[in-house]
Amino acid sequence: MPRLIKFLFCYLLVSLLSGCGYNAMQASDEQVKAAWSEVLNQYQRRADLIPNLVSTVKGYAAHEQAVLTQVTEARARVGSVSLNADQLGDEAAVKRFQQAQGELSSALSRLLVVTENYPQLKADSLFKDLLTQLEGTENRIAVARGRYVKAVQDYNVLIRQFPQAITAKIFGYQPKANFSVENEAAISSAPKVDFGAPPAQPAQ
């Protein structure tokens, strides 16, 4: 008899949790984590390309040290601002991560503008290959970021709906931070690779 009571209690508990969206929250939370892992994977892929890119540019434009340093320092800042899936509820931490990535994107854009002044560099096969990889990585970042945005949106909507909101409160499910509008705009523009564009004029 005690076993039957225990079984019925467990069955009732599982039924209540399922009906209140617990399983859906678990699945949605895992989806957000998977989407974020892919975002990090693509950002890491970009970071891994940068040392070779900087080294190649330095071979032709060693005196453009200021721009090369900016890129290297921006990459270092990106490496020091980690953000794992368990921190996605911390909006300030997400903003710091986005800002670091945005600074790296801006530094890369400045580097590519500088390369317009070096025809021999633009003809270098290694440089061309690195730019192709960079463009592909930026596209992958955009796709991964879009999937993360959608996963977070679905998750946040789920835990705010009734009766799931009650279950979320009981089990400690919190809303997760998404890309903010200004940061999304800052990092969603891939560095432009346009060999026909005129070189930028230095600021006076």
Rank of each mutant, 00 (worst) to 15 (best):
F127Y: 13
M25C: 12
E64S: 13
G19Y: 09
Q98W: 00
K6Y: 13
E38P: 04
T115D: 03
Y60I: 13
A35T: 06
V67E: 04
L13D: 10
Q98A: 09
Q101E: 06
S106L: 12
P51Y: 02
L104Q: 03
M25V: 08
A107E: 03
G136K: 04
E91W: 03
E91A: 13
N23H: 06
L121M: 02
F7P: 09
Q87L: 11
R77K: 14
A35F: 11
Y22L: 15
Q70W: 02
V114R: 03
E38W: 10
S105E: 10
L53P: 02
H63C: 09
A24H: 07
G19I: 05
A93T: 13
G59P: 08
N52H: 05
S82V: 11
K58A: 14
L131S: 03
E64Y: 06
L130T: 07
Y22H: 04
L68G: 03
Q98M: 02
E116V: 08
R45A: 13
D86V: 08
E103T: 08
F97Q: 02
N41H: 08
L126T: 14
R75Y: 05
G19H: 06
N41W: 11
A92C: 10
K128P: 01
A66E: 14
Q31P: 10
Q42C: 04
R75K: 09
V32M: 01
R96C: 03
A76T: 12
S28Y: 09
K95Q: 12
L17D: 13
A66M: 14
